[in-house]
Design a protein around this nucleic acid. Structure first.
Lengths: 237, 237
DNA sequence: TAATTTATATGATTTATATCATATAATGCC
DNA sequence: GGCATTATATGATATAAATCATATAAATTA
């Protein structure tokens, strides 16, 4: 299909490479990378890898959005990270030589490349620049996780809900209208990220909608009063 | 002072080096490391570094225990990580070339070395083994943080409290009596780790004490019914 | 297109936990 | 060693948010 054309022409012409950890590679290295990767198209809702699985390589998102999710207690899901094109996925388990501790599921149709494990280790060993890019990525994920811990420990569900919407906006941006968050998540998925019940999530979104902070249309959420949403996300006493 | 003697004789004879990321260095590299570090003794409660500060190097704990803590909303503290001898501290900000996003405070008198920033970057660039050790450390911290997120999202305060005691035991071990957790934290500090109020923390510890899961003596906590504590840490319905 | 399933919505009730209040114990300090 | 401060303890109350229940809307599939 025509829309997949750039995806098929290799890493050198990959439209997201300069947005990824591989931006630091020179032309020869990119060509080398290209030889050691293979790509696949995933339908919405497909698993890219699953909890407890063994990593066979590094995933790099060409297009599409992905959630990293783990099964907590009582079977309840927890969304740990949200991933967009240009991001690498599955690097943690790969680098520490462990099994995956979460599953990766596509939130929409996606094109994803997998980079051979052995090649990846060679590449980061021979290219400190690439290694530092990966390290920076992990460092950022750690920072985001620790921010999330503080939020979960100290904020109300209401505050975290507002914060989550700002986070979604920061991660996926707006659509052309400049106010609709460019991702479709079910209420349950949002709840699984915020750490609340689906009902509370629905209730709070309705409330924000009534208070004209946001505008709901199906799964689409538009931010119509950013200022007040930011306020709501912070302490409000 | 005599008790500091091994600490003063350099990295080659450091009693915790084989327990640290530097275990992978050969003799020459260790001697090189030794030249580029300096050591200091800290009193209990001292700051090793503070939030928003710029990293000057990598800290390596020779002895003593440390908490990494961040100021959340309304000035409330959040303990993000607990650190023991042999651990490195401050590596995240250093590697990603950012300011510290948390403070490091000693929980008891401590001996801590600081390894020169420039040297450290040279060392990890020239020694992939060392780099991988540091990466593994960060990978583990990320995993622990994400486990904490799931716990905060899905467990009750009571469950998290029991979990925290098991975590303290796993981190710092027992004293000679084989049941007293080898760390002294105030109730407030425990609350700041668990993500609850000081009162709830006190109340739950009292309750565990009454229920003979633990035995309290001042700040010392002994686990006297591990089985039941493990049960309490999990879902109990 | 009707039938079934799943998602969203909202009300009613319960409950865990924060908050406020006060007491006692422990610790640090002049 | 007595005084001030801080930490621990515990009761009373308020409340946010979970849970249970039911209704409606949307999406899937037969």
């Amino acid at each position: 299909m025509k829309q997949n054309a750039p995806f098929e022409t290799g890493c050198m012409h990959c439209n997201v490479r300069l947005n990824s950890v591989f931006k630091v590679l020179d032309e020869d290295q990119v060509n080398d990378l290209c030889i050691h990767k293979s790509c696949a198209v995933y339908k919405k809702g497909q698993y890219v890898f699953t909890e407890n699985g063994l990593p066979a390589g590094l995933f790099c998102i060409n297009s599409g959005k992905i959630k990293l999710t783990t099964t907590g207690y009582d079977g309840k899901e927890q969304i740990l990270r949200l991933v967009k094109s240009g991001d690498i996925v599955g690097y943690r388990a790969l680098l520490s030589n462990e099994r995956y501790n979460c599953s990766a599921v596509t939130l929409e149709d996606a094109s994803i490349c997998i980079i051979d494990k052995k090649y990846f280790f060679d590449a980061i060993t021979s290219s400190p620049k690439l290694m530092f890019e990966v390290v920076k990525k992990m460092s950022n994920d750690l920072k985001v996780a620790e921010d999330h811990i503080v939020s979960l420990s100290q904020k109300s569900v209401r505050e975290r809900m507002a914060e989550a919407l700002l986070f979604l906006k920061a991660t996926y941006g707006f659509e052309e209208d400049n106010q609709t968050i460019n991702v479709s998540l079910s209420r349950e998925e949002i709840a699984d990220y915020v750490g609340t019940s689906t009902e509370s999530c629905i209730r709070l979104l309705s409330e924000f909608n009534n208070d004209k902070l946001i505008f709901l249309k199906g799964k689409k959420i538009s931010i119509i009063n950013l200022q007040k949403l930011i306020q709501t996300a912070n302490i409000e006493d």
